[in-house]
Structures are given as structure tokens and as C-alpha cells.
């Protein structure tokens, strides 16, 4: 016996007609862009709690725990000071090299860590994706937020070291908050792009460390880009100076270090990059919303 049922022989057309007739909506289709943004805003408490929980569980497996969030960049700054400040002497053109280096490294590590973990935000959370229905943009956004939460203690240490290196706190230090907001916006943009790209072609994940290293060497983390301005073609010098990561490092430095004046053109460029990356990233990510979780 082959069992009989009312729809065994229904064709695709009949099924869609039936769905249409009773007002059924297709499931798992990509929502319209505006609707998608509304859904993300609706899940903001999920986003916030997930980010907090993830950042808190980061170092729960070792004895010093959260202390590593400060120790890591601090030790890194020590290494860079030894290699680039003392041995190679890349400190030309910078008076307060300690402050310069610490700000550069802490902020660069913040951006790089966000990018690295965002790359894994879809593939690393497949069980969650396959169990619950929510806008997937929450996953890269959660990485951005939890990295920002993790940055807070390190940021405190950064301010203390900067003050200790001979800088006198002024009102311009408050600009750090603005720089932070702009950088977080940029981080969200690159996180969307990385998550989407690695979901599409997971082999790209192997290139991420390479990109992170390349950007570390060209973004002026431990040397002043403008001090090399005369020896390289102008177009390249401008590119190096105005690419987003270099801009963000300069923004933080101009807020904290007296020798760097706040250049509002540069801040405008930084905000422009952030908005561009965020918008393009969100659209790129949203366009594959109906594909996350397939493999």
C-alpha cells in the first residue's frame, strides 16, 4: 500500500497558489533591508547580553583571568619598544615614543582582534544558527561589542601610561570617546565583510592573519608615517596616511599626545571611512542572510 494523502500529487504551482490563497508567507527569505534593520534593533538586548557574556568568558580558563586583557597588550608594547624603539630606532620624528607606541599598539590590537574573531562569527556559531531564528547580523555585531567591552580596561591602562610618559591630561582627551565611537563603527563594517567573505569561502580565513600583519606594518603602529613622506612617491604617502586604520591611530594620538595637533579634516575622513565601511558591510552581509547556516 502506498498511503494516500490529499496533496501527494500536487504540483509546485498548486502549492504556491494554495500558500498564496491562505496568505502564507515564504519562510527563510531575506527580509527587506529596512525590515532587517528593524529586526536587529528588536534583538538589541540579545546582542548586548551575548556580547557581555562572551567577553566575560574570554579568559575564564586561566588563573590570571581578565588580567590578561591588560597584560597582553602591555607585554606586546614592551616587545615593540625593545625592538623598534631601542634596537632599530624607528622613533625618529616622535618626541614621546612610549606614548606613541602604546596608543598605536592598543588601538591596532583592538581593530585586529575584532577582525579576526568576526571572521569566525558565522562558522563558529553554526549550532546557534541552526537552533534559533534571529537576524544573523547579531553575530558579527556581538563580536564588535564584546571586543569593545574588552578594550575598556586596556584603555584605562593606555591612559595611565600616556600620562606617565609625560603627557598632561587636557580637554582634548575627551576626544578619545569620539574616536572610539568612530572606530567601533568601522569595526562593525569590516566585521560584516569578514564574516560574509569567510562564510562564502572558508579558505579565506587563512588569509586573515596575513592581512592583520600587513596592516600592522603599513599603518604606522610603531613608526610615524609622515616622517617617511619625502622618500616615497606622494600618491603612496597619501594612501598610507589616509587609509582608515592609519587615520584611526592618528585620531587617538592627536587626542592624547600633545605633539600631534587635532586635524579636523582627518577626523572627517575617519568618520567617512567608518560610515562607508559600515553601510557597505551591512548591505553585503544582509544580501546573504538567507544563506547562513547552510554549511
Amino acid at each position: 500500500m502506498t498511503s494516500s494523502s490529499s496533496h501527494d500529487d500536487a504540483t509546485s504551482e498548486e502549492l504556491s497558489a494554495l500558500a498564496h490563497q491562505h496568505g502564507l508567507r515564504p519562510l527563510g527569505l531575506r527580509p527587506r533591508f529596512g525590515e532587517y534593520i528593524r529586526q536587529i534593533i528588536e534583538r538589541r538586548s540579545f546582542l548586548w547580553h551575548l556580547a557581555r557574556a562572551k567577553s566575560a568568558s574570554r579568559h575564564q580558563n586561566n588563573y590570571l583571568g581578565q588580567l590578561w586583557l591588560i597584560l597582553n597588550p602591555l607585554l606586546l608594547a614592551g616587545v615593540y619598544y625593545l625592538v623598534f624603539g631601542i634596537m632599530l630606532g624607528t622613533n625618529r620624528g616622535v618626541e614621546n615614543f612610549v606614548g606613541f607606541l602604546v596608543v598605536g599598539i592598543f588601538i591596532y590590537v583592538f581593530i585586529a582582534n575584532t577582525l579576526t574573531s568576526a571572521g569566525d562569527s558565522i562558522l563558529g556559531n553554526l549550532p546557534l544558527i541552526r537552533a534559533l531564528q534571529f537576524p544573523r547580523a547579531v553575530l558579527p555585531l556581538q563580536v564588535v561589542l564584546s571586543e569593545a567591552i574588552i578594550l575598556m580596561p586596556a584603555l584605562g591602562v593606555m591612559l595611565v601610561i600616556t600620562a606617565g610618559s609625560g603627557e598632561v591630561p587636557t580637554w582634548s582627551w575627551l576626544l578619545v570617546l569620539l574616536a572610539l565611537v568612530i572606530t567601533v563603527l568601522f569595526n562593525a563594517g569590516i566585521s560584516f565583510i569578514a564574516a560574509r567573505a569567510i562564510q562564502a569561502t572558508r579558505d579565506l580565513k587563512n588569509l586573515l592573519p596575513l592581512i592583520v600583519r600587513l596592516m600592522r606594518y603599513v599603518s604606522g603602529v610603531f613608526f610615524l608615517i609622515t616622517s617617511y613622506g619625502d622618500s616615497i612617491p606622494r600618491a603612496i604617502a597619501l594612501t598610507l596616511e589616509y587609509q582608515p586604520i592609519a587615520v584611526y591611530l592618528t585620531m587617538f594620538r592627536s587626542a592624547l599626545l600633545e605633539e600631534f595637533a587635532v586635524d579636523w579634516t582627518l577626523w572627517a575622513v575617519g568618520l567617512g571611512w567608518a560610515m562607508l565601511f559600515f553601510t557597505v558591510g551591512l548591505i553585503v552581509f544582509w544580501r546573504a542572510e538567507d544563506r547562513y547556516g547552510r554549511d
Binding site: 502549492l15 504556491s16 500558500a19 502564507l24 508567507r25 515564504p26 519562510l27 527563510g28 544558527i129 541552526r130 537552533a131 534559533l132 531564528q133 538567507d290 544563506r291 547562513y292 547556516g293 547552510r294
Partner: peptide, 10 residues
């Protein structure tokens, strides 16, 4: 939760 590679669910 898993997007179908072909077909639809209403």
C-alpha cells in the same frame, strides 16, 4: 533554520 537549496517553505 537551514535554508533549502531548492524549493520553498510557506
Amino acid at each position: 533554520l537551514i535554508p533549502p537549496s531548492q524549493g520553498h517553505v510557506h
